[in-house]
Design a binder for these strands. Structure first.
Lengths: 249, 249
DNA sequence: CCTTGTCGGATCGTTCAACAACTCTCTATC
DNA sequence: GATAGAGAGTTGTTGAACGATCCGACAAGG
């Protein structure tokens, strides 16, 4: 997993004789290094939100979290900013940060962008080295395994990873980041709806079918199938969402 | 002062009879509200960066900006976070924030995402109300006007607005936001290259042509044209970039 | 009874000052 | 000439403080 963050090295001055060797170490150290307190706090909260431990609408109290996490308010607020820009928290001026409550419009919007990105990525695949499908195979297998066990939360996780890896085939850092934000928000939506089996069961098999098309190099058919897939998934999610809204108005 | 002008009725449930009316007001108040100090500072810096007043690679000193802007370091840092997540600044731990220096890989990456979004938006347009093309007409006209005057910076601005409005036809908040980030970063790239005439002149006419196709409802042909358009633009930008790199190594 | 104005507690927005941690540069040393 | 280390300068983080704003409750008025 190379992270080609631009413009890091200074090939200009200095005695960079054994550069190649050091470069690798420096890279590794840096990625280890890259843990400001705020980012570690953000990582922790991100996990909580994505896993659904914090219910939608819940307010994250600064005072409370400062006590629990043993960081200063300023640092905590920086973590909040990070997550806010990932769409995992919403910030209301003078009121604090909350776990977002997505509405139907948000779901439609999320799927709109999702279709745009995922379908386009698949459509543009050609001359793909089959080795790069390896992570997708693993994810599909993980999903099937989870389904056999009846662990639909794990199936959902595998599904998310499948789609993240699918998008990664484009080899674009910015597409990956956009998709990551998107899928994280979507995960929020799944949690607010519940009913993981209903939402995930149909797509264990469809992921397999999609992957088969990719293996066969049938990118156009794969894109078409993915389009239908995502429409169906959206419809299912909206229906489940409405069911839930009816129960708890 | 509340005189409910007839128009809006919500023939549904509950006591929310003039819901639509209130909704609009709430929206307006909220957007008015949205003025924390950090965001105002961010807006100021954003303008500076986008307009190219700060050269790529320049470090924004906290101490210095605190003095100039008369805000606290914490507030300034929050503004930095905002811009960092828009891609307009990069943050290196313990070293500060810098105006990004995009390299060729970044340009390729930006255009990759750009093609994905813009072409897909156009491809999915159908049954479009011609009224919604109004902003695009204005932008094309502004571009043509700037070109006549030889003001290629203004032409570039008009071009950016054209593409932002183009993407807005999808009617998706998240697509708009993604495109905004994208175009802001691209703008950075244009500045680091210079040569605005070379980069913008050809697309004044092509924007007009593209718009004509949209007016005619020929979305497929428009998408195809846009695809070529963006490929050409990318190639031109890369070539200009290499020319410049050769001059200043 | 419902609306409107007022008050106090709680929380957020922002500032400030201080110290710790880190990077960069320059110098002394081998 | 390369290396190690000291010092200066900058960022990272903390904790406390004060004003601004939100929220719920309660009283005054129609």
């Amino acid at each position: 997993m190379a992270s080609p963050s631009a413009a890091d090295d200074d090939p200009g001055r200095g005695p960079d004789t054994h550069a190649g060797w050091l470069r690798a170490v420096a890279e590794e150290v840096r990625s280890f290094d890259r843990s400001s307190t705020a980012e570690r706090v953000a990582e922790l909260l991100r996990h909580r939100v994505i896993e659904g431990d914090l219910p939608p609408g819940h307010r994250l109290s600064e005072e409370q979290l400062v006590d629990v996490l043993h960081v200063s308010r300023n640092t905590l607020r920086e973590a909040f900013r990070l997550l806010t820009h990932e769409g995992l928290l919403v910030h209301r001026l003078h009121r604090g940060v909350f776990v977002p409550e997505l509405d139907e419009d948000d779901l439609v919007d999320l799927y709109r962008l999702r279709r745009t990105i995922e379908c386009d990525v698949v459509r543009r695949l050609h001359g793909l080295d089959p080795v790069r499908l390896r992570p997708l195979h693993d994810d599909v297998a993980a999903g099937e395994d989870a389904a056999r066990r009846g662990d639909w939360v794990a199936a959902g996780t595998a599904n998310m990873r499948f789609h993240q890896h699918l998008v990664a085939l484009a080899g674009s850092r910015r597409i990956d980041e956009t998709a990551a934000r998107l899928l994280a928000e979507l995960r929020l939506a799944f949690h607010s709806v519940g009913a993981p089996q209903r939402l995930h069961e149909p797509y264990v098999g469809r992921n397999r079918a999609l992957l088969d098309l990719l293996v066969a190099g049938e990118t156009d058919r794969a894109a078409k199938e993915l389009e239908d897939y995502l429409h169906d998934s959206e419809a299912e999610l909206l229906a489940a969402f409405r069911d839930r809204s009816r129960r708890t108005p």
